[in-house]
Design a protein around this nucleic acid. Structure first.
Lengths: 241, 241
DNA sequence: ATACAGACAAACATGAATGTATGTAACGCC
DNA sequence: GGCGTTACATACATTCATGTTTGTCTGTAT
């Protein structure tokens, strides 16, 4: 039995971990509070001490995973690079690498595509997704203003293509039970995509200077380490009694 | 009250329709038998007359939707065309058009990504998906043997790229609440993909005959101006029963 | 040492979903 | 025009998850 303050935080984290696993395995609706608690080596008493109900853990899970990533991604876009498309490519490749090794991210991705997570949960997911699309769109707008974007491709189109490709990669990788190297294959596909977004492929084969002009400045990868992005506890549902 | 034989089939179909809608809205686990029955304008008695339990309707739903589609797709591949990639492109474009107008397919797609559908349901989905990938792979092997596939791209890679792109398109279209023209945008993206699969884009700009062997009909791009592509949300008005 | 609050476990009450059993009206058949 | 069967509706029993309450042990402050 754990009774000290820090042990309590440990218990809370254990419940979050267990909930993440159970939500991912059984789905949100089918993951019982009893199941989660037992998976954490506890009883429902502990669960209801730390969380108000199942929706509360989901929100906590969401915050624990996405809040740090959001900050990092918005940091990526802040960098004012001369080659926005290449910057986006590097960020996406790094995101794939991170996803490939981080089982927590994988579980959250699965959980958040669950239909049973309820209205507020869905809204939270939609918000995150809209932010990511807005970020990509901003990059594309810069590329357009920059002249690096293929003039025959709309900003909206380019934004869509990137979104579709990355989302499709993650989903297919998980569904296929990780039967291909996500980062490697994804990087190749994305590189092709980026090339297409740059050059005019339709009729006029203009001067190609596609993915060579990377500035020899500080490696953008150094900023992009999303590995092990775990925030300390945030919210606490005060027990009533 | 319906008592004749054909009326019985009609109620069975009504239950299937209702289940499809409820599974899609609430998710599999949260869609109660009571809810489904009431949505069909019936009671649970009718439900348990026609189906053993909830898993049974899911299986029936699965069969009703995928069995016909499988036949069509395998028919597509049966045709021995000199240009497999173009054949695949046409089939994919047709699939996108069908998906865009067929709400049943859309619902099934959502339902089958639900985590709570249970082990056998997931296996069924995996089977379908594996078959589709095998089909695409066959086409790619033909293209490779044919010489139309870019020699710098593996068959497995090409198969993956197509799968990822189509899956990503469908998922993103549904998630974004259909805020872009699926068939049009998808067709453009797929066309780019196919071009990439044909020509050697990496370094050696060999003789490009990429997307030229297209019959001199109307320019496909003329139809495809999606600049500022935002479609009005087509909300459905589902008739009761 | 004692008292109090924090951190849980265990028991309880409630509601909801499930499956089954029973009732019943219409259909098809001779 | 009785009769068995079909196609449901209704009623019931049971299981099961949830949320709450109560009990209990343990750190910690005084």
């Amino acid at each position: 039995m754990r009774r000290s303050k820090e042990d309590s935080e440990q218990t809370r984290a254990a419940i979050l971990d267990a909930a993440e696993r159970m939500f991912c395995e059984k789905g949100y609706a089918a993951a019982t509070v009893e199941l989660i608690s037992r998976a954490a080596g506890l009883t429902r008493g502990a669960f209801y001490w730390h969380f108000r109900d199942k929706a509360d853990v989901l929100a906590a899970l969401h915050a624990r995973t996405f809040l740090p990533q959001e900050k990092i991604l918005t940091g990526v876009i802040a960098s004012d690079t001369p080659d926005p498309l290449d910057c986006l490519f590097l960020a996406a490749a790094e995101a794939l690498r991170s996803f490939e090794v981080n089982e927590g991210e994988q579980r959250i991705f699965r959980i958040m595509s669950d239909l049973t997570i309820g209205q507020d949960g869905r809204e939270a997911v939609a918000r995150i997704h809209a932010e990511m699309r807005a970020l990509i769109r901003t990059v594309m707008q810069r590329a357009e203003a920059n002249g690096t974007l293929n003039p025959r491709i709309t900003v909206a189109e380019a934004e869509l293509y990137i979104t579709v490709t990355i989302g499709g990669l993650l989903a297919e990788w998980l569904r296929s039970d990780k039967c291909f190297p996500l980062a490697l294959s994804g990087e190749r596909l994305l590189r092709h995509l980026m090339t297409m977004l740059r050059t005019d492929q339709g009729a006029a084969p203009r001067a190609r200077q596609c993915d060579s002009p990377r500035p020899p400045g500080p490696d953008p990868n150094s900023v992009l380490d999303i590995r092990c992005a775990r925030a300390p506890k945030t919210k606490q549902a005060l027990p009533q009694r």
